[in-house]
């Protein structure tokens, strides 16, 4: 059990690294935005998982329970999710405009077009 004490952090780190890899390695802009989403959800886990107390319950006050998980990360991440979808919407709108201007959503093709012209 000692070895697995930080398992939640490791899952978070795996997702974070996967998202980072997609953002850096892939030239397709829609794929990049999806990678950014994976990175974002890993941050949700990073905040929420330390807020959990084993044996605790959801932070809804009730006379039946005395131990609650920490409500503050939940509040922060609720805000983060909504802001995340707003940035996703703006990013996708940019992708649509780029596709109209260059007829491509691949970074490398756009770069080649710019340098041929």
């Amino acid at each position: 059990m000692e070895v697995l004490a930080n398992i939640n952090q490791w899952v978070t780190i795996f997702l974070m690294v996967a998202g980072l890899y997609i953002v850096v390695a892939r030239g397709n802009m829609v794929k990049k935005l999806i990678g950014l989403g994976v990175f974002q959800t890993s941050v949700y886990l990073l905040y929420i998982s330390p807020g959990k107390i084993i044996g605790g319950t959801a932070p809804i006050i009730s006379p039946d329970f005395t131990v609650y998980s920490n409500p503050l990360p939940h509040v922060l991440i609720l805000t983060a999710i909504v802001v995340g979808v707003a940035t996703l919407a703006v990013g996708l709108a940019l992708v649509v405009r780029i596709n109209e201007a260059y007829d491509s959503i691949e970074e490398d093709e756009i770069y080649a077009q710019e340098h041929d012209a």
């Binding site: 959800t41 949700y44 979808v85």
Partner: peptide, 27 residues
């Protein structure tokens, strides 16, 4: 499972719902 019920509902609605719709509309 991590007791974040509000965040879970938001993620299901926003992450799986609205984001997917936006991505499909872009595709």
């Amino acid at each position: 499972v991590l007791d974040a019920v509000d965040v879970s509902m938001t993620e299901a609605a926003v992450g799986a719902g609205i984001s997917t719709v936006l991505l499909l509309a872009t595709l």
